[in-house]
């Protein structure tokens, strides 16, 4: 076991994938010599060489589009988008081909590829560097939308994503990259995609979150326990599409109350889908309206205002208290 931060944990998964499968290639802007702008690809070029760890020209459609071709030809590309805000330049390749090839060719050609990207706010960055647009990919059939929240699950989910026969959009909460360390097993470890994780057990209310917001959510849950004797169950979605309805519904059937927390915009966000599933699957267990605590339906502000946009522990606690008095 080693204590790793998320950057190192992701790096470990990439190294393991490159080592175990010669068809895996890592490609993206500045991933080689520079070792990634966040250093997620540290030492990979030195270890695996230019044929496997590839510095591409500055062209996202080129990266994902050629990765489609590589995947068709039997390779397993792991693409990096430098920031999720620049993946739109590749979106027509993602929606038009990555998500469709298996279905289009009636199972003949698959897309065993991963598109990794840092997302989310909190790092005092320029415009387009802080958004959380996971809903776009969750809304696109044919993709799996995976979002890690801590070092250990980051490693396990990335390795599982690379091994998976179908394409994965892999979101990395950049605010968590170096925020804390966690024990990460030495032996390759994977987690099943499509499964949510109960991160904290409780009986009074269910909090559903993912990505960097898991930290604020867990902090709020601990505070609520200390301050109000409220025991919140906290669910980390980990995969937002396909969504693990069962785990969420089981929890809410027990607690009867739920608040969904995410940075992404509210309208048609992941929270909207969670609420819809709960209403469909456990309506009669609900004791109170389900709350969504999310980024607002405005563009992610420039960083002087970002803390006002991001849901924090205080906002979560208030929403929980309001939901409990309903």
């Amino acid at each position: 076991m080693a204590q790793l931060n998320m950057v190192k944990a992701l790096n470990l998964a990439l190294r393991e994938a490159l080592a175990e499968d010669n068809d895996v290639v890592v490609m993206g802007q500045d991933v080689g010599q520079d070792e990634g702008v966040f250093r997620v690809t540290e030492k990979l070029l030195a270890e695996f060489g230019r044929e496997r760890v590839i510095d591409t020209p500055l062209a996202e459609a080129g990266i994902v589009g050629t990765a489609v071709g590589l995947a068709l030809y039997g390779m397993k590309p792991v693409c990096e988008m430098q920031f999720s805000g620049f993946a739109y330049q590749a979106y027509h390749q993602i929606e038009g081909h990555v998500a469709r090839y298996r279905n289009r060719t009636r199972g003949r050609y698959t897309m065993p590829m991963v598109v990794r990207m840092p997302f989310g706010g909190g790092i005092r960055a320029l415009e387009h560097h802080s958004e959380s647009q996971e809903a776009i990919y969750a809304h696109t059939p044919g993709l799996q939308m995976v979002i890690c929240s801590a070092p250990r699950n980051a490693r396990a989910l990335l390795l599982a994503s690379i091994r998976h026969p179908d394409p994965v959009i892999f979101f990395e909460p950049k605010a968590v990259y170096r925020a804390f360390k966690e024990e990460v097993p030495d032996e390759p470890e994977t987690m099943e995609l499509g499964k949510a994780h109960v991160a904290r057990v409780g009986k009074d209310i269910t909090l559903v979150s993912f990505g960097a917001m898991m930290r604020a959510t867990l902090e709020a849950a601990d505070d609520l326990s200390d301050e109000d004797n409220i025991e919140a169950e906290v669910i980390d979605l980990l995969t937002v599409s396909p969504l693990d309805t069962e785990t969420i519904a089981n929890s809410v059937s027990k607690t009867g109350r739920c608040v969904v927390v995410h940075e992404g915009h509210r309208t048609c966000g992941i929270g909207a889908e969670v609420v819809a599933r709960l209403v469909e699957s456990c309506f009669y267990h609900l004791e109170a309206p389900i709350r969504r605590l999310t980024g607002y339906d405005v563009h992610f502000p420039y960083f002087a205002r970002e803390q006002a946009f991001l849901p924090g522990a205080d906002r979560i606690k208030r929403a929980v208290r309001e939901t409990l008095v309903c």
Binding site: A304, Q307, A308, G312, R318
Partner: peptide
């Protein structure tokens, strides 16, 4: 209308949370 509602929520959060604006 939905944004008007969210703006009220935003105001409320600023009032109660002491979030700071600035560089």
């Amino acid at each position: 209308a939905e944004l008007v509602t969210q703006l009220a929520e935003f105001d409320e959060a600023l009032r109660t949370e002491g979030v700071t604006i600035g560089h």
